[in-house]
Design a protein around this nucleic acid. Sequence first.
DNA 1: TTGTACGCGTTATCAG
DNA 2: CTGATAACGCGTACAA
Lengths: 337, 337
Amino acid sequence: MKPRPTLEDVAGMAGVSTATVSRVLNQPERVRSETRSRVKAAVAHFDYTPHFGGRALASNRTNTVGAVIPTMENAIFARGLQALQESLAEEAVTLVVATANYDPAREADQIRTLLGRGVDGLVLIGEARDPSIYAMLERRGTPFVLVWSWRADCPWPCVGFDNRAAARAMARRVLELGHRQVAMIAGITRDNDRATARVEGVRDALREHGLNLNASRLIETPYNLEAGAAAARHLLAATPRPTVIVCGNDVIAAGALNAVRSLGLEAPADVSVTGFDDIDLALVLDPLLTTVHVPHRRMGEAAASLLLTPHMRNAEVRNVVFETTLVERGSLAPPRK
Amino acid sequence: MKPRPTLEDVAGMAGVSTATVSRVLNQPERVRSETRSRVKAAVAHFDYTPHFGGRALASNRTNTVGAVIPTMENAIFARGLQALQESLAEEAVTLVVATANYDPAREADQIRTLLGRGVDGLVLIGEARDPSIYAMLERRGTPFVLVWSWRADCPWPCVGFDNRAAARAMARRVLELGHRQVAMIAGITRDNDRATARVEGVRDALREHGLNLNASRLIETPYNLEAGAAAARHLLAATPRPTVIVCGNDVIAAGALNAVRSLGLEAPADVSVTGFDDIDLALVLDPLLTTVHVPHRRMGEAAASLLLTPHMRNAEVRNVVFETTLVERGSLAPPRK
DNA sequence: TTGTACGCGTTATCAG
DNA sequence: CTGATAACGCGTACAA
């Protein structure tokens, strides 16, 4: 197995210095076109690729951005990541993805790992995390962007939407249709500002109608099908039975719909179900899922552009908010009289 | 913004040489425990993290493994990746994921990028790709593993299952139930050995019954809902109408079920539908999807262990095959008399 | 426009 | 068990 070719090998073959080869690679316009083509030929001959470590060491940049997401196992973050990656790729920046499985300690670990790898920037989901992490990021001066979460006075660069307002809008619509027996299956709110905000939004709307969300009407579960189904079965066993179950995301809602069916009930006739996120899943359920559409791809793109903006530190625009839209489909209907 | 601390800073504070600090980090047992703790204190004080580039340059390893997958947008590869990542993390290896969007040129690019980043190993999906890529990998001596695809005489290390046999088994079951009007919606077979093998498997079974798959009964589409639905609508417009649609994966099958419903037909009474992959999606469809269960997680784990085995080059076991199982659920039933 | 030469932070070899 | 020091491959002032 041959040792990997180096700048020197290429330079030797092209009859130039390593500096020139380096320039051809990084600032081609600063090299006479004749030499340039000679160098390029040599590069091609060796199938030369710059050594990442050497480059990182000399330039102190890696052209790498890291993202830490809770999980790849459900599709929620996939689309946004894809967009992020595509946007970064346009600037020849590589995306490194790590998962934390909704565990703050593991997230901290992953952040450390990525920083250790010298990422030039970091994308993190949501705002809720230990202050020491923010301190570390600031100390190291690594640019970062929070996505999926947004509030006007967020002290960090963030790209997202108002989870609370979106959930409030959904709950308002539910109430407007006449529902009064409202139950909710939320994600685990601990250490999760999105899940928390969504619960608060629902509470807001209920309060406007003089209602509230009893402890017995609110269950927190992990974001997976089985958990959603189990929670729904529990809620539907109560008397009076809820006429609607508002879910913290689409996966939970899918589980809830499964439970409804398995109990011999029908949605939305016996009980309505709503979701959040509008992933593909929402379109294959029966009935189709009423949910909150979230601008996955645009968040990814915006995060990329924020990170790629060099003057990010003093930039005015460090805070991007997107609108969400309520998508009404078959799973939500007025309660049966 | 303070410059990042280096080995030297830590060494200075601990009153030792940089070599010792390095040893504490990499082979703690080779340092007296007293000095070790002094060094550790200094490391903690500076919140020191080794510089990735420096380390890569000196050791010529990155503790990084790359994976190039077609897409993150559907859940098909997510679970396997998650398992891969978890297994690698146990050995302190970081996974870098890149996507190629089912485009061979883009895949080649991504492979090059990852090699440029100095990954210690590579995970690739399937076997079908330009020989020059394999040549490049061999020349550079970078270990790699093919997953999701398998055949006994595959010349490269591979971890997967027999796509053709699995599809054949599914089609046999379909025929056994009495179906004779069989249609198929496959993935795009070009440059995709899995999609190709699945079509071949279906053809095998049909042939055993003296049947074949007319061009009009086979449509290739991208792996997404809309494409699956469109293809199904097309197939269902034919006379005689197929009594079953065998799909190349679950996402396509979900689209097909949508189409069935939108045409006012019912599955499986009017037409059966089968999938492939057994992702979560299969469990939320109505009817539940009959599909082929694929060992996502075990493939990920096996790929990790192959890659982490140092003597992989001369290893006897470079070729791991898993069984698939046919999961019968509601979407497949005998044809109506 | 091109070349020379140094430094980036770490590991590994070799003495001690 | 520890220290000195030579690589490792590249980018970039600075000089020519």
